[in-house]
Design a protein around this nucleic acid. Structure first.
Lengths: 222, 222
DNA sequence: TCCGTAGAGAATGAATACAAGCCCGGCCTG
DNA sequence: CAGGCCGGGCTTGTATTCATTCTCTACGGA
């Protein structure tokens, strides 16, 4: 099976979790993983510990398994992310340099010129992610970046994107534009307000996606 | 030297860093630490990795050393903590249960009845910490608690407390009282505003403490 | 038939052994 | 004398072996 040690066990296990090859509640047995990835237990242990501190893996006693999210955790994650995005927008408004503005603007222009119909969903998501990343960077706060990294790890486990309709995409562009203007004008309160509302929308779409998924798997009326 | 394996190498190294026994930029050599704590390199490695993800230890190439904070990082940490405390207060206002309120109130009463002059600074700090922890708990957000844990790790490395004068202590009590009222009234915006202002004060005191320390070690006029 | 216990097996935790890379110092040459 | 190259030792990374704990199963007795 897997034989070339191209990447670290950490990344391989991480990818296996994200791709659901290792589904939630899957048992993570060191010796089995060691055999699968053709390394000894030592690097596997290290990878599992790291994944544990990231929160992708959980221990029950001494056994470890892939962490399973409950629906209400998704809500928590979105709410906390909303607070962090608000904080990043406020701080970016106060601390940004001209170079930061240029980078944010470029990311914004890249989104504007993207052809929604021709682009893959992953491309849309990546462009959107870049825009947000550049705002985080403009906050020049290592502590804030650290927390954002930590919280965003959990988002990669949710499939799909909240940018799937043209209507939503256009609204995102508009809100990004407003956010950019507020940051450029060093209007921290306004930037924070816009960022917060922006994330709230994403949260609501996510909730709707979840409800729809539930309806499909457990239809109320046949 | 250190011979009884009472606690984990992780905690022992951590304490050594906090107590400055291992000062900033101290080289962390696995074999040396293993010998010092009478364990093999394996648990030492594990401890170092964990401390690395916590941000207390940093790697330069493959070598590891105790992380050194620059003054502006302290500011970042306080600002981010302020955002998180604001978020926790807002969320606690919305989500608290009656039990949460009782616990917060008890922590508050414990602070009120503490005799400022008789108490040790560590006692004052601990009582204050408990009050804040109960508010975090009342947010019922695991994600928020996780981020608070992560950011607060860095605060333990700063010596002293911002509660050293009676005037400050009384003001803290007053603000806690207001915060408690806002949370009880489920007034999220007000609670967030109070918590934010409360942390801003602590930040400013911290900055003043830093300036004073600088003045002493590098006096401007002899 | 069900409960309790004992034992075997497997999993993690720790220690030791082995491999590879890096840095530093000394030596040699231009 | 200066600069570059080579070698040795130290440090981290990985593998392997040993110890301990925990669970699951099977058997025996009430």
């Amino acid at each position: 099976m897997a034989s070339q040690p191209e990447t670290s066990p950490y990344l391989m296990i991480r990818n296996a979790i994200i791709s659901q090859e290792l589904p939630p509640r899957a048992q993570l047995v060191e010796s089995a993983l060691a055999k699968k990835y053709n390394v000894s237990r030592t690097p596997i242990r290290e990878a599992l510990r790291r994944l544990e501190t990231e929160g992708l893996v959980e221990r029950y006693g001494s056994r470890m398994q892939v962490r399973e999210y409950r629906p209400e955790e998704m809500l928590d994650l979105y709410e906390v992310r909303t607070f962090l995005e608000e904080a990043a927008a406020k701080t970016a408004a106060l601390r940004h340099t001209d170079m930061d503005l240029m980078l944010i603007d470029r990311a914004h222009q890249a989104m504007v010129t993207l052809d929604f119909d021709a682009a893959m969903p992953a491309e849309l998501a990546a462009a959107n992610r870049t825009f947000h990343e550049r705002i985080w960077a403009a906050s020049h706060s290592a502590a804030l970046l650290d927390l954002l990294d930590r919280i965003l790890v959990h988002f990669i486990r949710y499939p799909g994107t909240t940018l799937s309709t043209r209507e939503r995409w256009d609204r995102v562009l508009k809100e990004h534009e407003e956010l950019l203007v507020a940051i450029r004008g060093r209007n921290a309160e306004e930037a924070g307000r816009i960022a917060s509302a922006h994330m709230d929308e994403a949260k609501n779409i996510r909730i709707q996606m979840y409800i729809d998924a539930q309806e499909i798997s457990h239809p109320r009326s046949p």
